[in-house]
């Protein structure tokens, strides 16, 4: 985190309905953060400060909660979020090679976004589709029985689609 984050100017009014519904409901911090992430795509630092102020909490507490859970992101993500499952079944069935393929093909590290902002890559806990292992999700869509070749094809198709637009 650097100082720039705090100086960000997110449109905080977008959060009003969420805060109206939940700010006064005890125990709703995670729900608020989830909805904030829905709105902004990630959790900008000024939004975290805003939530702290509006819920009568402190930034330390809100950031503490947000950084505890893997769902929350503090950087904008690409248009396509690739979540590669690293569950046991996927591991046994070679998810490591799939991870390598994605990293090499897109030149992107785990937890990072490609230079063109199209893809973010994240290795995640078990997605519960073990019988299709190895599995990945791109945004809402699940892809199973992956091989290095099939992964490349899936990514190429998305790239083609994007290039056409």
């Amino acid at each position: 985190m650097n100082c720039e984050c705090v100086k960000q100017k997110s449109d905080l009014s977008l959060l009003c309905p969420v805060l109206e519904e939940y700010a006064a409901v005890p125990g709703s911090l995670i729900t608020i953060l989830q909805q904030a992430q829905e709105i902004y795509g990630y959790l900008p630092m000024d939004v975290i400060y805003h939530i702290a102020a509006e819920t009568g909490s402190t930034p330390a507490k809100v950031l503490g909660v947000a950084t505890f859970y893997t769902q929350f992101r503090f950087q904008p993500v690409g248009k396509y979020l690739i979540m590669l499952c690293n569950g046991t079944a996927c591991h046994v069935n070679g998810s490591e090679r799939i991870a390598q393929t994605i990293q090499e093909y897109l030149q992107v590290e785990n937890g990072a976004t490609t230079a063109d902002g199209l893809f973010s890559f994240s290795i995640v806990a078990c997605l519960g589709c073990c019988s299709l292992s190895p599995v990945m999700m791109i945004n809402e869509e699940t892809y199973g029985n992956l091989t290095p070749d099939s992964v490349k094809m899936i990514l190429q198709e998305i790239q083609k689609k994007e290039a056409a637009q």
């Binding site: 630092m45 402190t58 930034p59 330390a60 507490k61 950031l63 503490g64």
Partner: peptide
């Protein structure tokens, strides 16, 4: 800071091995 001084200035950030205690980031007001 939270329970006795009632400030809540300090907090735990992250989890696992890299968990850290952070005072208030960069915000002078805090």
């Amino acid at each position: 800071c939270e329970e006795d001084a009632k400030q809540g200035i300090l907090g735990l950030v992250g989890r696992g091995f890299t968990t850290a205690i952070k005072p208030e980031f960069q915000d002078d007001a805090v």
